[in-house]
Amino acid sequence: MIQISDSKTIILEDESYEIEINSDKAIDLTFVIQNNTNVLVNIQSCPSLHISCELKEDYEAKILYWNSSKNELVTSEEYNVYRNGDLTVAYGECNLANTNRDTTILLKEAGANAVLSSASLVNVNKEYRMRVVNEAEHTHGDMKNYAVVLSEGKLMIDAIGAIKKGAHRAESHQTSRALSFAEGQKATILPELLIDENDVQASHAMSMGRMDEDQLYYMMSRGLSIEDCTSLIATGYLLPIVDVVKDENLKETLKKELEGKIQELCSM
């Protein structure tokens, strides 16, 4: 495990990494990817985090940021993906502290591919601004945001998919789903598609709202309490985020943490 308490540049040349950030000051990290790699970044504490990352041609990188911080986290992240590079950036947010993220992924050369996804159990303020920009032809961007908003939570996602002039046959897609279980919970999702080329594919799908009453009745008719149903549904929404991690032990640890947090918060 790599422990981070100061700003630095990290060369990622192995298949998998576990990085832990624990600092009471702002951190500036640069990832230079020189192999296909799978990275778990566990944020224990850090008031302000800046990430810059270059994914060179033909490499595949999957990075999961797992927010375990007890204090507010503000991040700004920039990723450049080059020819045929394949990048996944994912956020697991089930902690009880505010988060403010600003993420930009630039698909700079032909064949570059990126998936930007989040899974959030929201019982505080979570605010994300996400941009995936197709700068070159045959690039593919996908944003997937899943959130379960609880009674004290407030979610705001500004998801921008942009296709620049000349990015022929580029694709920009996004899916956002926010689920709540009671009245008065707040979620705002702004899906934006800024298209400056004709020969492209772009889409967005969004659903927000309370759990369907018929579904709740069906599940309860098999003996589950409202809290059991909430936990099961929330787990189904959020758990797939841990699949980004390749290491089975790590995946199991994160899964248990997320399930525990869901059970704790959903039965409150």
């Binding site: 579904q215 069906y218 599940m219 098999r222 003996g223 309490s225 059991d228 549904i233 787990t235 189904g236």
Partner: peptide
């Protein structure tokens, strides 16, 4: 019967068996 996306038959049934 309702369709519940995201919840597997196995998780659902195990939970339903455990509550009793």
């Amino acid at each position: 019967p309702q369709e519940i996306a995201g919840v597997t038959n196995s998780d659902f049934l195990r939970a339903a068996m455990n509550v009793r």
